[in-house]
Design a protein around this nucleic acid. Structure first.
Ligand SMILES: [Zn+2]
Ligand SMILES: [Zn+2]
Ligand SMILES: [Zn+2]
Ligand SMILES: [Zn+2]
Lengths: 162, 162
DNA sequence: CAAATCCTCGTTACAATATAACATTAACTC
DNA sequence: GAGTTAATGTTATATTGTAACGAGGATTTG
C-alpha cells in the first residue's frame, strides 16, 4: 500500500487490528441480522482487516487463494456485502476499501458517515468521526495531518426524482 | 447522463450555462495565470460545459472530434489541467467531471472545496458551498434533496510523512 | 419429505476507466 | 535560429468493474 512517493521510511505505516476478534464480531453481527457471513465474505474481510491501509479490490483478488487468484465477481460481491453491513468503507478517491474503525456489532448497530484522512505519501488512512468540515481541519491539525484537498459528495434523490 | 433508474420523466435535467461566456472567462484566467488554454483543453472544457450534468471522460473522448474519437491521453491530460485551474471538478464517486459552478476568473481567483449533491436517479449534480456537514443537510433539505450517503475524504500528508 | 423458492456462488466473457512510454510538434528564451 | 521546455500525438497496455447465466445450497411451504 505504500505509495513510495518519497525517500523517507514508512515504518509508521502499521495498524494493529485484532483480526480474530473482528471476525468473531462480524459473525455475531451477521447472525443477529439474519445475514450469512459466507466463506468468500469472511475471506475478503479477513484480508482487508489484515492489510496495512486501504486495499485495492484486485489485491484482494490476487491474495484470495493460497494457490491462485479469485474471480473478480466473487470479490466485488463480497465487498458490496461487507460495505452494506457497515464492516468496511469504500474510499472513492482511491478505488480502495478499508475496514471500518468502529463497526457495528451484534449489540450495537452503528451506521455512520465516515470521514477519512488519506496520506498521499505512505497511503495510510485514518477514519475520523466528524460532523463538520471545520472538524476535519481541527482533527487533522490535532493529528499533524496536512490537508491538501477535501472531497465531499452526497448521494441521494433530488426533489424532482423523489 | 440520465440514469434511467425510474419511470418518471427527467425534463428537469437541464442546466443553463452560457458556454461562450465561460470559455472567454477561462481564456482570461489562463492568460492571467500564464497558462495556455490550448485546443484540446478548450474543446474538453466546451464539451463539459455543454453537457447536462457530470460527464464521463470517455464521453468527452467520443465526442471530441466531429468525425471520430480522441485518444484517451489527450482528454485525460486536458481534464487534469482544467481541474488544476479550478474550472472543473472531478466527482470521485461517479468517475466523472463537471464544470465548476463558481470558477475563478482573471480578476477573482477562487479556489475552494466543493461539495456536491448527486441524484441517483436523474444524474444531476448540484454544487453547493458549504463549510459544515450540517450545512449539507440544511442545503439538501432546502433543495428538496434526500441524502442517502455522504462521502468525505481529505487527502494530504500525515504527520510522519511531512 | 419433496417441491418450490431464493440467495449465493462459480465461471466466462467483456466493458469501462486510466496510464506508461516515447516520438513529435509547438512555443518560448536567449 | 539553436537550445530548451511544454504540450501533444501515438501506440500499447494496465487497472477497475460488470453482465449474463448456470449450478449449488439453504429456507420455506405444502
Ligand atoms: Zn466506519
Ligand atoms: Zn504518511
Ligand atoms: Zn467549484
Ligand atoms: Zn433527480
Amino acid at each position: 500500500m505504500s505509495q513510495h512517493l518519497c525517500d523517507h521510511d514508512h515504518s509508521h505505516d502499521t495498524t494493529t487490528i485484532n483480526v480474530d476478534a473482528r471476525l468473531k464480531a462480524a459473525e455475531a453481527l451477521c447472525a443477529a441480522s439474519g445475514e450469512r457471513l459466507t466463506a468468500p465474505r469472511l475471506r475478503t474481510y479477513e484480508l482487508i482487516l489484515g492489510n496495512n491501509g486501504p486495499m485495492k479490490a484486485y489485491d484482494v483478488i490476487d491474495r484470495f487463494h493460497p494457490e491462485g487468484a479469485a474471480k473478480p465477481p466473487t470479490v466485488y460481491r463480497a465487498l458490496s456485502f461487507l460495505e452494506q453491513m457497515g464492516l468496511i468503507h469504500r474510499i472513492e478517491s482511491l478505488n480502495a476499501f478499508v475496514a471500518c474503525a468502529t463497526p457495528a456489532n451484534a449489540d450495537h448497530h452503528h451506521p455512520h458517515t465516515a470521514a477519512f484522512l488519506l496520506c498521499d505519501c505512505c497511503g495510510q488512512s485514518e477514519e475520523i468521526a466528524t460532523l463538520s468540515l471545520a472538524d476535519i481541519e481541527h482533527q487533522a491539525q490535532h493529528l499533524g495531518f496536512e490537508v491538501k484537498h477535501i472531497t465531499v459528495e452526497a448521494k441521494g434523490r433530488c426533489k424532482a426524482c423523489r
